[in-house]
Design a protein around this nucleic acid. Sequence first.
DNA 1: CTGAAAGCGCTTACAG
DNA 2: CTGAAAGCGCTTACAG
Lengths: 368, 368
Amino acid sequence: MFTQHSENTEITTENFSHYMSKTIRIKDIAEKAGVSIGTVDRVLHNRGEVKKATKEKVMAIAEKLNYKPNIAARALKSPTNYKIAVLLPLAQDDNIFWSKHPIGIENGKEAIYPFACTLEFFYYEMHNPADFLKQAAALLEWQANGVILAPILKNESLELCGKLDDLQIPFVFIDTNIEGTNSLSFVGEDAYQAGRVAASLIDTGISKVKDILIVNIAKNLENVQHLNLRNQGFQSYFMDAGDNNGLKISIEIPDTNPKVVKEKLDQVFKNNPNIGGVFVSSSRTFVIADYLQKNNRSNLFLVGYELFGKNSYFLQQRVINFLIGQRPMEQAEKTFRKLFDFMAHNAVPDKKDYQPIDIINTENMDLV
Amino acid sequence: MFTQHSENTEITTENFSHYMSKTIRIKDIAEKAGVSIGTVDRVLHNRGEVKKATKEKVMAIAEKLNYKPNIAARALKSPTNYKIAVLLPLAQDDNIFWSKHPIGIENGKEAIYPFACTLEFFYYEMHNPADFLKQAAALLEWQANGVILAPILKNESLELCGKLDDLQIPFVFIDTNIEGTNSLSFVGEDAYQAGRVAASLIDTGISKVKDILIVNIAKNLENVQHLNLRNQGFQSYFMDAGDNNGLKISIEIPDTNPKVVKEKLDQVFKNNPNIGGVFVSSSRTFVIADYLQKNNRSNLFLVGYELFGKNSYFLQQRVINFLIGQRPMEQAEKTFRKLFDFMAHNAVPDKKDYQPIDIINTENMDLV
DNA sequence: CTGAAAGCGCTTACAG
DNA sequence: CTGAAAGCGCTTACAG
């Protein structure tokens, strides 16, 4: 500021632009540069076809005057129609967690008004690679300008990301992250920390001499990254902060089939009568809650993930003591917004955006 | 829909407007009505000077075509300059809770772009009626088009609301509600439920045979409504849901002066050696945390309100076990938005908008 | 490589 | 009480 003033002692309008905050228009730049507004527009939008000297002059002036385009005028003139494709797991049965994301994205679309975009949703069966690839192909055919995807299936997702890169189509990750891709951003949970939160709650809820049962319900391995991180966080808490001195008994249940669950848990509880609390590392907490309720073990302190469907029911019933939530709707809206702001306004987001980890019990569940 | 079709079997464009979703402009309405766009504009904005028959005709057509103004065009033509005044408690010392609200309101102002408004902040000393009135007078003189206020001081706030009503200036409440006013909306905490949440956390954290100490730190009575509601909620939890069978010992401390606090608490703990947990009904939780830490009572389970300043420090130190938070920044932004959307787009908000009640401990405090 | 002009949908004087 | 016209700041053909 000082340098500028000493270099240019002449008091002209632009010296005061900061103070007067008079809005700078393309026309102002054009006048200063001695060119037409068409030329300024070409420079600002990198449309080429401008002599290098002219371009630099215009750029310098735009910079100096701190030009910001009037978005209202832009939206009015060219009703933007970006095509945004969304690739998400299909919400079904024990998986209706995913029903919130499309709503969040639609909300995002509403919120960008007066801008607009066209959304197309593609859904794949959660753990079905063939279906993922099929939907990915359909998505590519639709020729989106930008893509939002939940890259649950790692290999197949990487394949899609490569193709999007080739086509120079920007994409953002939601819910799950894959490191080392060109994703514009990732919006989701810090799974490790979410594991620590679960641990702290169980630690609060049960006596320090009681044992803790850790239940991993996983149908296949693709999702393990997320669950593993939660498990690691859970264990870490007891290394540096927790009071509990009991055993940490970890089991895996491959299936949500009630019979399989009952068989497995009956055996665990028979062998470990000192268990005081149960941690479920996934949103399928209700499966364990159902078992506990039916087998007169509701007194056990139960902590799991995600407020929805049957989880909400068992939290209401106080069979589940705490759920850890991650606001899927807000997450989805945020993801959409990042992609759109990049496409429409060249805003480059942070690579990672960890979302709040909500602690939910019966008393605040209706207000979260 | 069905009725409409059977009444009018002729297939015309407007029958399909729902499906084709072609945007309706003032010009379209004008053509249908056989008038000029100026007249349509007058009708839509209630600027009078229109023959009643014309007005009704235009209204009917606008309704039928489901006309929505193009906000980009509106913003472009008349750079809106609403004057919005904000009246908040001054954030100072043990009260920096209030430092977040101005930021949230500024964020709201950013978010309405391409619209704009002028903000003016007026701050009053938290419990100083004379200062409140002085600032209220300054606010009125500024001639705002809309007002955001935290009506902590009930009588003085009512006086201001009356004057705003006379001047037909819309206003919204933040943080605290006063029933029976013309406030456009209230955005804040459901204090009763927030009391229940606190109770549920203490209930989880301590043995059912331990006693609970309830501490109300209040300098004066104006704020009592909020604290009372929290106390009522707290007690109610143990009537219908809680496990704890211990005593609920309630005390009032008029002052945050450490000596006064120590004197009072020393006595309470001497008389009640069975206390296992402490509930502080206000954001001054850190005052009690400080006492507990200095007097070797950090093992007591401490629950209070608001994540900020010294509260955050003691939560980090695990002296405070849980804080219940209400996201002041988001609350402020939301409040601003409601007022603005009403002023600019005639959107009438719900009278009450209870915000999420966050449960915060050491493990999720950095992500909330 | 550059300029002049039209037009997006609305609001705001101005003229009658 | 009503209409015709100008103009907000930008983008998009079109002409040269």
